[in-house]
Write a protein that binds this DNA or RNA. Sequence first.
DNA 1: CGATTCCCCTGATAGC
DNA 2: TGCTATCAGGGGAATC
Length: 277
Amino acid sequence: MPELPEVETIKRGLQKSIKGCTILDVATDTPKMIQGKTLKDFKKEIKWKKIIGIERKGKLLIINLNSGQNLVFHLKIAGRLLVREQGAQEDEYTHIVFKLSKGKELRFADLRKFGWVRLVPKTKMFELPAIKELGIDPLSKEFTFKKFLDIIEKHRGVVKKFLMNQKVIAGVGNIYASEILWKAKIHPERKVEDLNEKEKLALYRATLAILKKAIKLKGASVNQYVDAFGEKGGFEKELNAYQKAGESCSRCGTRIAKITIGGRSTFFCPRCQKKSN
DNA sequence: CGATTCCCCTGATAGC
DNA sequence: TGCTATCAGGGGAATC
């Protein structure tokens, strides 16, 4: 699943490979993945526009065009953005193909078809609901411990939901929430208002450490994830909690447990991550 | 207003 | 062996 580290990895891959390319054409077999306008208008507005930059906001991948418009992508669970040479072997589940100059193609593949792309003028980006209420990016300079404490004080409730709430911290999803809490030794059902100073610091540090390490290893290839060149990440080998139910905790040997929080599977070590003392 | 449920889609898995 | 039922999963919409 492309969460912050995976989208960041894709972003870096696209910067290397398609920055400077011009979009020549678009084709799709699933028009509903293109949101906000008809395929005809979408095509008309991006044809002959040049890709001048790639950004990431939370889990959103943004391609800047020289027309002042942005292509905004959400890859959801199984979305892939692949850069290929034209005529290269097909990638399964490809639903949108951007034909580019320099003999390249940007392919949007998605087994689930939950992903979407939308063309948004950069002056209207803040009107996009997915961006308007987006919380702080944990990799930004503004994400200091002091800021983290300010944010925590404004919230109550289950800590895992807090971490996964895109309106609070942008980019943390189901995999990294379990990993961060495991590293911080905090039970996923603890309430943020009950965390002491030491635990808050551990949570802050674990958030940064896990995300940075995952980026360094080019993401976790869980489910469908691969980078812009179809390569798997390396962080899935470093997972200590996510999808480890029944396996021994690498810290203490206790079996990793699985519970459901907010309809999402959640993994933790019942011994390292106690609900109460 | 906040919390929960439904829904989009389809491969994997379980159950018969 | 092969069919059908169930589930996962991000996030917006509908509902409680």
